[in-house]
């Protein structure tokens, strides 16, 4: 059996991002394997450990994505296929390119992050499934392989959960709670150096550009209003004003 995790590299949530000319400058930011994709990597490693076979990483992104691929290989995946693409690409474009890789790999099951930390689109997993005509289960918190043709999964809803049976091959997206991703270890990092990363230029898979062009990017700035009422002269008026602000503006009383 063959288990695939689709991964991407994203800025570390704690990284300090800079805005430069209406774009986010990532050159000084720490880039990491998307934490939602980490659940995907852990899941295929556990599947391989339980059922045997191969754990394969499939990645899409610019050259630096290799660092995230090495992390996944250091966790224990066997090899990787890397679709290399510099510049922006929307999830549908990415999914079409990835689908061609997956059609060739013919895996038993595919996992990827339930959402993407950089775009927050939720679209990649379902779009890959759509491009392949495979079923898709989103936000998985439990997965059990029954045999090579079917599996059961738990799918989280806002106020509950569903258990489903899905025909394979299928694409599942992860949700926190699916598993506890292992740490990449130093021996793992050393072994990862020797593992194969097969590189495919995205153009060879028909990527000519992005269908959604990013015009500008901005970082949310959270600033306090620093509103201070002077209560030393007319304390009653100040108190009334405070109540009014809490009621009308802050809407907390």
């Amino acid at each position: 059996m063959k288990f695939v995790a689709i991964i991407r590299q994203v800025p570390d949530g704690e990284a300090k991002l800079r805005e430069e000319g209406g774009r986010i400058d990532l050159s000084g930011a720490t880039m990491i394997l998307d934490q939602m994709d980490e659940y995907a990597v852990e899941e295929i490693l556990q599947l391989k450990e339980k059922h045997g076979g191969e754990a394969v990483i499939v990645a899409f992104g610019p050259e630096r994505t290799k660092e995230a691929i090495r992390t996944a290989l250091a966790m224990g995946a066997d090899r990787a296929v890397f679709v290399k693409h510099e510049g922006d690409a929307d999830p549908i474009t990415e999914a079409k390119a990835l689908a061609k890789v997956l059609a060739e790999e013919a895996p038993t099951v595919v996992f990827t992050g339930g959402q993407q930390a950089d775009w927050d689109s939720y679209a990649l997993g379902p779009a890959v499934a759509e491009a392949l005509g495979w079923p898709s289960v989103a936000w998985t918190t439990a997965f059990e392989l029954e045999d090579e043709t079917q599996a059961t999964a738990q799918h989280d809803l806002d106020e509950g959960a569903q258990r489903v049976r899905v025909r394979l091959p299928a694409v599942l997206t992860t949700q926190q709670g699916l598993n506890e991703p292992r740490y990449p270890t130093l021996p793992g990092i050393m072994k990862a150096k020797k593992k194969e990363i097969k590189e495919i230029p995205a153009e060879e898979l028909g990527v000519t550009g992005t269908k959604v062009e990013i015009l500008s990017q901005a970082i949310v700035k959270i600033e306090r209003k620093q509103k201070i009422l002077d209560g030393t002269k007319e304390p009653e008026k100040a108190a009334e004003e405070l109540v009014r602000l809490l009621h009308e503006e802050a809407k907390v009383i």
Partner: peptide, 9 residues
């Protein structure tokens, strides 16, 4: 790259 990976890990 490997040294950076060790630090991050």
């Amino acid at each position: 790259e490997e040294e950076r990976a060790v630090q991050q890990a």
